[in-house]
Simulated assay, not measured.
Amino acid sequence: MQNQTLKVEGMSCNHCVNSIEGALRNIGVTAKVDLKNGTVQVQYDENNVNLEKIKHEIEEQGYDVV
């Protein structure tokens, strides 16, 4: 399992948390959104999904991974 913390801009509320965590859960990624710090901590199996796919899913929800 890989652990990574991503800096994400545009998150401000619980809808943001649910949107990102739900989208990542659908691709087999465990995510924890931290609104205060503007980060998303992800845990994933690199044999099933890569970091680029995770970033893409976050961006598809309307947020920017920086």
Score class of each variant (00 low, 15 high):
residue 1 M to C: 09
residue 2 Q to G: 01
residue 2 Q to C: 07
residue 3 N to H: 11
residue 3 N to Q: 11
residue 4 Q to M: 00
residue 5 T to H: 00
residue 5 T to C: 00
residue 5 T to L: 00
residue 6 L to W: 02
residue 7 K to R: 14
residue 7 K to D: 10
residue 8 V to P: 02
residue 9 E to H: 05
residue 10 G to H: 00
residue 10 G to T: 01
residue 11 M to Q: 04
residue 11 M to T: 06
residue 12 S to N: 14
residue 12 S to G: 05
residue 12 S to A: 13
residue 12 S to T: 07
residue 12 S to M: 11
residue 12 S to V: 04
residue 13 C to N: 07
residue 13 C to S: 10
residue 14 N to C: 09
residue 16 C to N: 03
residue 16 C to W: 04
residue 16 C to F: 11
residue 17 V to H: 01
residue 17 V to G: 01
residue 18 N to V: 09
residue 19 S to M: 07
residue 22 G to F: 00
residue 23 A to H: 15
residue 24 L to M: 10
residue 25 R to T: 07
residue 25 R to C: 03
residue 25 R to K: 13
residue 26 N to K: 01
residue 27 I to D: 10
residue 28 G to E: 00
residue 28 G to R: 00
residue 28 G to H: 00
residue 28 G to T: 00
residue 29 V to T: 14
residue 29 V to G: 09
residue 30 T to S: 13
residue 31 A to N: 02
residue 31 A to M: 02
residue 31 A to Q: 01
residue 32 K to A: 04
residue 32 K to D: 11
residue 33 V to W: 08
residue 33 V to Y: 06
residue 33 V to K: 08
residue 34 D to E: 10
residue 34 D to A: 10
residue 34 D to R: 05
residue 35 L to M: 06
residue 35 L to G: 12
residue 36 K to S: 12
residue 36 K to E: 11
residue 36 K to I: 13
residue 37 N to W: 09
residue 37 N to V: 07
residue 38 G to E: 01
residue 38 G to Y: 01
residue 39 T to N: 09
residue 39 T to R: 03
residue 39 T to I: 10
residue 39 T to Q: 05
residue 40 V to I: 06
residue 40 V to L: 05
residue 40 V to K: 08
residue 41 Q to N: 14
residue 42 V to H: 06
residue 42 V to W: 03
residue 43 Q to C: 05
residue 45 D to Y: 05
residue 45 D to P: 06
residue 45 D to K: 05
residue 45 D to S: 09
residue 46 E to R: 10
residue 46 E to L: 09
residue 46 E to A: 10
residue 46 E to M: 14
residue 47 N to G: 13
residue 47 N to L: 09
residue 47 N to F: 09
residue 48 N to Y: 12
residue 49 V to I: 07
residue 49 V to S: 00
residue 49 V to C: 02
residue 50 N to G: 04
residue 51 L to Y: 02
residue 51 L to E: 02
residue 51 L to C: 09
residue 52 E to A: 07
residue 53 K to V: 12
residue 54 I to W: 14
residue 55 K to D: 01
residue 56 H to W: 09
residue 56 H to N: 12
residue 56 H to M: 12
residue 56 H to E: 06
residue 57 E to M: 15
residue 57 E to H: 07
residue 58 I to W: 03
residue 58 I to P: 09
residue 59 E to C: 14
residue 59 E to G: 08
residue 60 E to Y: 15
residue 61 Q to H: 14
residue 61 Q to M: 13
residue 61 Q to F: 03
residue 62 G to C: 11
residue 62 G to L: 06
residue 63 Y to P: 14
residue 64 D to F: 10
residue 64 D to L: 07
residue 65 V to Q: 15
residue 65 V to R: 08
